[in-house]
Design a protein around this nucleic acid. Sequence first.
DNA 1: ACGCTCGTACGATAGGCATCGTAGTACGGC
DNA 2: GCCGTACTACGATGCCTATCGTACGAGCGT
Lengths: 117, 117
Amino acid sequence: MSTAPTTSNRDLPHPARDDIRLEAVLHALSDPIRLRIVRELAADADELACSRFDLPVTKSTTTHHFRVLREAGVIRQCYRGTAKMNGLRRDDLDDLFPGLLDALLAAAARQAVRLGD
Amino acid sequence: MSTAPTTSNRDLPHPARDDIRLEAVLHALSDPIRLRIVRELAADADELACSRFDLPVTKSTTTHHFRVLREAGVIRQCYRGTAKMNGLRRDDLDDLFPGLLDALLAAAARQAVRLGD
DNA sequence: ACGCTCGTACGATAGGCATCGTAGTACGGC
DNA sequence: GCCGTACTACGATGCCTATCGTACGAGCGT
């Protein structure tokens, strides 16, 4: 049976849009690894599986960082088969803090150039 | 003798403009008290003495927060008599990360309205 | 059924940090 | 010279967190 590997029913807790706190977002992005994740997520059009990231930490630490981002309201996560897909919460963030995400991504890109990636 | 209470010679270490790291700035602003300080600093035209802030922490903790902001490159500090004056490093931040500071301040203001200050 | 891959849970550890109190220094006014 | 104000230095404390390793669960392919 071609069991279409769609979104699994085990779901993950996300903060509602109005529960997203600016301080939490800033704290989430103040870690180099998490900032890098968000940058890659923004660069890629659609959602990415956790395994697509080549991070300089172990898998358990990676899980931790993705959870911090999700609980801060920066990313949205869902299971698709065994993979866990990640996507930026652009819509919610732009609605709550217009222009902030773009400014942050631009700043991160600028710094990456300045420091030689 | 009318010893003009100008800038004292005991100076404070500030990061050079090119040493300012985005992660450090975000971390500095991810604390509610420090975000509040920066908001008040941005609202007021010129520099403000530490004692002008009415923060819900002791003086030693206040000193700590101002130092974090200074070492992250967010504010500039100098002594004037016994007072320590604080000013936003708008020029440097706008130069390094165009639009970021404004977006952050707008986001903070928006959240303050949303949550009832 | 079996194994493989992807991701989680849990405990341990080490370092960071927000907070305080107390004791001290620097400066200006009297 | 003496006092008061503004800020600092230092140590203590308790919490948070980034990291790891190991053991486990969930789903897919064969």
